[in-house]
Nucleic acid binder design. Sequence first.
RNA 1: GCGCCUGUAGCUCAGUCGGACAGAGCAACGGCCUUCUAAGCCGUGGGCCAGGGGUUCGAAUCCCUUCAGGCGCGCCA
Length: 569
Amino acid sequence: MDMRQSVAELLREAARAAFPQLPEAELPQPAMLEVPPDSELGDFAFPCFRLSKALRMAPPAIAQQIAGAANRPEVASAQNVGGYVNLFFHRANFAQNVLEDVLARGRDYGREPENGRTVVLDYSSINIAKRFHIGHLSTTMLGNSLKRIYAHLGWRTVGINHLGDWGTQFGKMIAAFKRWGDWEMVEKGGVDALTALYVRFHQEEEGDPCLLEEGRAWFRRIEEGDPEAAEIFGRFKELTLKDAQKVYDLLGITFDSYNGEAFFNDKMGRVIDELREKGLLEESEGAFVVDLEAYKMPPCLILKSDGATLYATRDLAAALWRKDTYHFDKCLYVVAYQQNLHFRQVFKVLELMGYGWAKDQMEHVAFGMVSYEGQAMSTREGNVVHLDELLARAQEKALSVIEEKSPGLPGKADAARAVGVGAVIFTTLLNSRIKDIDFWWDRALNFDGDTGPYVQYTHARCCSVLRKAEDNGAAPDYRALTDDEAQAVLRLLSRFPEAIRQAQKDNEPSAVTRATLDVAKAFNKYYYERRILDADAPGTKARLALTRAVRNVIELGLSLIGVKAPEQM
RNA sequence: GCGCCUGUAGCUCAGUCGGACAGAGCAACGGCCUUCUAAGCCGUGGGCCAGGGGUUCGAAUCCCUUCAGGCGCGCCA
């Protein structure tokens, strides 16, 4: 059932009847319909201004005639306001249509059948020996949510954690470990101990030039596959992943691959050979580059003057490998906007190599930077908020609210986890991803207003009403849902699938977050204006159907952004 | 200097493939719990949509331009 489609059809016939001379192209089409700013005006509107030229009539007169021809009382009624034809659905029918659709499909509401297409998502992509902090929130949450959204819309998804596990810094880290560290301290101190070693290395490096050479030597040993280097580095990697896994588990995030930079180390030869063969590689200032001046970009560096590969080389190799392995139809890079130029260069080089798919299948899903209470984050100066700390404090806050408001609640810890974690995820995915984020503790721990807990609370409230309801055996009477508050909820429910599609089209999960929030807001208003459980059995049945539909859609919306919906809180 | 992005209420932001009086949350103030979860609901105040030009019946939205801020611009990733 597509309301927009059928409304367009109705108006089309009406326009044809009223103005037989109107050219086909001017007749109402789904895309021409708008939703009026105020529901008082109607459920759909068709602006007639553009027709006034062809018909040589004033828009209000046109609208009036079309409206006159569009009245079908059993489906919808039409009237003109100025140059608009405004169309009102038959409210009880609309309620029945929407609710039957939502309830029949349940969690599959808005789901689209498998389309045989594959999307590869590169997200989170943590660095070895660095602790998870709020700077990683956006890529992790966006990637996870996009993966769920694409899957809902019928795509096969491949989530890749492109590990930052290659570079001289890891040689330095081993050198530092050999000098000042031991396994006991590293096992006990975890990733923080590794970071501390690295920081110390940098401090002492200035006074002792031997250190730099030592670090380089160890990196060379990693490159050559030296057993000791591999052993040490392997354990560093394990340690980091174990740490990160705790956070991923808490957030409900999974990956299909952890193939990162190291994985592509032996796969760059192909890229270099191909670039050379195709005459794209040229020497410049001792290095090898692909010139992109024709595209108004600086050259893309492929090989350093010492012959070593670079970031772009690895990303080119990764793109080709992913294409060969997964045969993707889309490959998304959920990476901060600082790397805008880098990705534009890499995509352009792929295109120049003859891979036409790079033009429309590769996409940089860019997002804004994170600062901490007005200042740039800096691990060195301790000006960071670690993710585990944020999640812990959010859960504490949730628990204390539960202790205060629902002291008798069974499973308090589970609810507190869902709410605390949900608050963090929801806030991260509420606004356009391109916006910079300035992190403030009091904002992060606010659970009022446009927040995850607000939406979860609405869901729990629905569950509570449904628990109290008894099956009264009556057939639902949808005339009980013709009031403005119920209709507002129904309109939002009916538009929800469109929000999912919009989120996918723009790679913007906030479209889903906001649509879910809108449903919750409308329902809370409804809840206060109208009593759901009432002596009127057929009406109650219909209001419960609305409540159940809202509960389903909130649960679905939250699940698409990776947030749990507890039944009680 | 060049390129990309951002600029809407005190703060954080929706709305930006043109449409009907520019919306929400937070903060402030004032109401609403003997009835389905008050993490809620209602109300009040608060805006030359950064400035200027243009296109259009119609511009926060499209084009040009200026200004402000962020990011990037060869051997880091």
